[in-house]
């Protein structure tokens, strides 16, 4: 699933280049320029992609690693000024 979502993100980078709409000045609903509607829908698609990424590609292992039992000892050992 992670690979599929990575592929979707890569495809979206390509779909962002909507060269076929470059000179299109038609209005949707009589007031919204087509190019603007396309990119507003793109923003909504990104939010949906984020929902899927959270559901299927969330790095639970990283969370467990960071919040593991050894946190306290590591924090005490660290050489930085503010914790």
């Amino acid at each position: 699933m992670k690979n599929f979502l990575t592929g979707v993100a890569a495809a979206m980078l390509i779909l962002h280049q909507d060269f076929w709409l470059w000179e299109n000045t038609n209005l949707i609903f009589g007031f919204l320029p087509t190019g603007l509607v396309y990119h507003a829908c793109f923003s909504i698609a990104v939010a949906i992609l984020a929902v899927f990424a959270i559901k299927y590609a969330w790095p639970h292992d990283l969370e467990r690693w960071a919040s593991g039992e050894d946190v306290k000892s590591n924090m005490n050992e660290n050489k930085y000024d503010i914790q």
Binding site: A9, H16, F42, A66, N78
Partner: peptide
């Protein structure tokens, strides 16, 4: 705007969460 939405989300996911884990682990 639209490209920022996508790139920001990728960065939050790929960089942000990993950095959080190091912040948590090493302070």
């Amino acid at each position: 705007a639209s490209i920022s939405g996508l790139v920001h989300v990728i960065c939050f996911f790929a960089i942000g969460i990993r950095l959080w884990s190091y912040g948590m682990k090493h302070g």
